[in-house]
C-alpha cells in the first residue's frame, strides 16, 4: 500500500512541477518566474524525500536540506538582483 501511495504522490508532485514549469515559461513578469522557480525547488525537495522513502534510506536527507538552502539563497539573490541590479550592497 505504501509503495502505491508513494507512486500516486510522485505523480502528483511531478504534475505540480509541470504546472510550475508552465508558469515559468508563460509568466508575464520576472517575479512570476522567480516564484515559479522557488516553488519548483520546494517540489523537488519533496520528490527527493519521496525517493528516500521509496528506497528506504535516509541518505537523501542531506541532498534535500542542501536544495532547501540553495533554493532560498538563490531566490533571495535573484530578488536582490532585480531590485537593485546588484546582489551584495
Amino acid at each position: 500500500m505504501l509503495s502505491f501511495a508513494i507512486t500516486v504522490v510522485a505523480v502528483l508532485i511531478s504534475a505540480a512541477l509541470f504546472i510550475n514549469l508552465w508558469r515559468l515559461i508563460i509568466g508575464p513578469t520576472v517575479q512570476d518566474r522567480i516564484l515559479a522557480l522557488d516553488t519548483m525547488y520546494i517540489n523537488s525537495i519533496a520528490l527527493i524525500v519521496l525517493y528516500g522513502l521509496h528506497e528506504g534510506t535516509s541518505l537523501y536527507f542531506e541532498a534535500a536540506l542542501l536544495i532547501a538552502m540553495l533554493g532560498f539563497v538563490s531566490t533571495s539573490a535573484l530578488c536582490k538582483y532585480i531590485l537593485r541590479g546588484d546582489i551584495i550592497e
Binding site: L2, I6, L12, I19, N20, T39, A46
Partner: peptide, 21 residues
C-alpha cells in the same frame, strides 16, 4: 498513517501549484 500523510502532502503541493497557475 504514513500513506495518509503522504497523500495529504502531495495534494497540498499540487493545490499550491494549481494556485500558481
Amino acid at each position: 498513517i504514513v500513506a495518509c500523510f503522504l497523500l495529504l502532502g502531495g495534494v497540498f503541493m499540487f493545490i499550491g501549484s494549481v494556485g500558481l497557475v
